[in-house]
Simulated scan of single mutants.
Amino acid sequence: MVGPQQALVLAAQGVTSGPLQSWIQDNIVPLVLLAIAIIILWIGGRGDNAGVARRSVGLVIGLVALGIAVSGRAADVGAFLARLITG
């Protein structure tokens, strides 16, 4: 486990999590999306259209959250949503 002082030393040395984030976005995210598509096609193939519809709504919400997280624009999205409520 990296303590606060060790984290400062690593940051001062230029060690960042950028390459790891890039690798996750390039490799893990497409695999997760492929798995989701296969599961939805499998459920739809059984004739459970209502189940597909229920799961699709949740998946769309999850994909929106994933898109916000990987875009780095979460603060802008939060400010926009706050303006919708407060006017």
Rank of each mutant, 00 (worst) to 15 (best):
M1G: 14
M1I: 14
M1K: 05
V2N: 07
V2S: 13
V2F: 11
P4T: 12
P4Q: 12
Q5M: 07
Q5V: 15
A7N: 08
A7R: 09
A7Q: 14
V9M: 07
V9E: 11
L10R: 13
A11H: 13
A11N: 14
A11M: 10
A11P: 08
A11R: 13
A12F: 01
Q13F: 14
Q13P: 04
Q13G: 05
Q13K: 15
G14V: 09
V15I: 09
V15R: 07
V15K: 12
T16H: 04
S17A: 15
G18S: 11
G18R: 14
G18D: 08
G18K: 10
P19K: 10
L20C: 14
S22T: 08
S22C: 00
W23E: 10
W23N: 11
W23Q: 13
I24M: 14
I24P: 12
Q25L: 14
D26T: 15
N27I: 05
N27C: 04
I28V: 06
I28T: 06
I28M: 08
I28L: 05
V29F: 04
V29H: 00
P30T: 03
L31C: 10
V32K: 11
V32D: 15
V32R: 12
V32Y: 11
V32F: 02
L34F: 15
L34T: 15
L34N: 06
A35V: 13
A35N: 07
A35Y: 14
A37L: 03
I38L: 06
I38Q: 13
I38F: 12
I38M: 15
I40N: 11
I40C: 02
L41M: 08
W42A: 04
I43S: 00
I43Y: 00
G44Y: 04
R46I: 04
R46N: 09
G47R: 04
D48T: 00
D48I: 01
D48C: 02
N49S: 14
N49K: 11
A50K: 10
G51Q: 01
G51T: 03
V52H: 00
A53D: 03
A53C: 02
R54D: 00
R54F: 00
R55S: 03
R55D: 01
R55V: 06
S56V: 00
S56A: 04
S56G: 02
V57L: 07
V57M: 05
G58L: 12
G58K: 12
G58I: 03
G58T: 06
G58C: 03
L59G: 13
V60N: 01
G62F: 03
L63E: 08
L63H: 02
A65L: 12
A65M: 04
A65V: 13
L66A: 12
L66P: 07
G67T: 02
I68G: 07
A69F: 05
A69G: 12
A69K: 07
A69P: 06
V70H: 15
S71Y: 08
G72Q: 06
G72R: 04
G72W: 01
R73F: 10
R73K: 14
A74D: 15
A74H: 07
A75Y: 06
D76W: 02
D76P: 07
V77P: 09
G78Y: 08
G78L: 08
A79Y: 06
A79C: 05
L81Y: 09
L81D: 05
A82R: 09
A82F: 13
R83T: 13
R83C: 01
L84E: 06
L84C: 13
L84M: 14
T86A: 11
G87C: 03
